[in-house]
Amino acid sequence: MQKKVSPYERVKLARNAKRPGSDDFIAALFEDFFEIRGDRAYSDDNAVICGIARFNGAPVSVAAICKGRTIEARIKRNFGMAQPDGYRKFLRCLAQAVKFRRPLITFIDTPGAYPGKSAEERGQGQAIAECLYQMSAAPIPIISIVIGEGGSGGAIALGVADRLIMLENAVLSVLSPEGFASILWKDSARAAEASDVMKLTAADLLEYKIADYLIQEPDGGAGEAPELVINRVGELIKSELTELLKLSETQLLNDRYRKYRLIGTSDGEVCLD
């Protein structure tokens, strides 16, 4: 019998450094991983990892926003806050996946896009918009997994997918509970209360049909048994990919469009071709 975990406790679990990171998932689930580097325009952003690998014997493209777990890794990866260059590296990865007709698997773990001066100068908003735009119509199967924190636009930039999977203690939200509390109640200390009304847990998002699957974690979170959780994710990717690969491109794209098209419609009646 699992004890009841509050939404804010899940937020804290989602941020726990013991949790397996995106790089751990990539190392455990794929073979022959070859990392592609740089956006061919400005730099190589270490907050975003992109590459080609073998999954279940077949080539796939892989992309992730990665926080890092040690202090050194966190500094190197800018605490998982991507620059426009990171999103543009991802756009390269996506374009290659489309060109070579490889499925795309993405892992999401970020407090949000980097809110810095250089990021603005290089078009953070435009870079994120372009990711949403291109992912929405990329004719390849896309599976995204939110493994920890899914913070706002900077997270969904890698998350326009045919299947959105969330770990049980992962969260996805419009901003952090601290930020939310501070806007609405002018008091960031009321983050726990904010977490209760925000509906940011995997269970909430599953209920709203924004997430398609929830992967159970052991008591105390994924950090208690990383291998078990990673294997569960691997099994689910395998079975979902098999299903998605059966669909025609048209069917795949229509299903993806419909999935997002129906979020927040007043009557659910939408004309789709």
């Binding site: 949403l132 636009g153 969904i156 419009v174 098209r261 927040g264």
Partner: peptide, 20 residues
């Protein structure tokens, strides 16, 4: 804020519609 995650998802919905 008051529409939370549904509000966030409108970024994807609108971008997908503009793409089409």
């Amino acid at each position: 804020m008051q529409e939370g995650i549904f509000s966030l998802m409108q970024m994807i919905k609108t971008s997908a519609a503009i793409k089409r």
